[in-house]
Amino acid sequence: MNPDNPKMGFFETIANIDRRVIFLFIGFAVIIPVLLSFSCTEEATPIVQAVYDEIESLPEGSKVLISFDYGPSTVPEVQPMIDALLRHSCEKNLKMYMMALWGTGHNLISESMQDIIEKEFPHKIYGVDYVNLGYKAGNQGLINVILTDMKKMYTTDARGSEIDAVPMMVDIRNLKSFDLILSMGGGFPGIKEWVLFGGDPGNIPVAGGATAVSAPLLYPYYPRQLLGLLGGIKGAAEYESALIKGYPKFKTHSHPAIDMMGPQTVAHIVIVFFIVIGNITFFIGRKREEGEKREGGVIK
């Protein structure tokens, strides 16, 4: 603190606040709502509702291709979307074909199958209601090939079974055999590549879920090329809310995105608070500098 001008010293201290203090505030902003189980309900926005409505409108037995295009770093944001979409697809009796354009997505398919389908819908049969096609290299090149011939790239499923021995793969020829493509992730390769190399050339509806950071980059494709998008935790929470509204039985199931909205809300408020503080101190500092310059000019 400046002893000659204690008031400005205070503002200087605030302006140059140690970043560890900010870290501490953010830490508490996340931990306290988690400990108090503070959560918030969400209303689905049109961009999220469009995905829900599309799945809701698909007749029983429709084929949905779900691409796990993400890794563990974005699991907290993307996994709640996947869980909600899988629950919805299972409830609607859709056929789920799971694959990954990311090597890290391969394990996440298995985990999602175990945690959601096998645990919550034990009557679903592997190979009849859902299949794990696993990871294949090639990025957009892979999409380009399966657009015309799926079995050229997928000769077995992830468990090593011959692809034609998997009942639900028998009538799959290429991407055009699917009624909907869901790409989850938002990085490269991801939703953009599915739109450009799969959805557009094959005239197949594409929707997806992306991290909050990547979602703004995908808006140019909405709504004509990308029928809907779940953006970040908020998008996932909106989808979970829409699912609970449509199927109240899911209220008793886990809804991690709705639970995470509480900490996210408080963290956002803390960030806004620090931005406001930063600007107040900036303006005071600027005014002070201008005053000093003016005084200097008068003296000269």
Binding site: I22, G27, F283
Partner: peptide
């Protein structure tokens, strides 16, 4: 990232 975003926002988001 959340921690760094908060710290960077405080320092960079100024109405200059």
């Amino acid at each position: 990232l959340a921690f760094y975003v908060a710290s960077a926002s405080h320092r960079a988001f100024r109405a200059k």
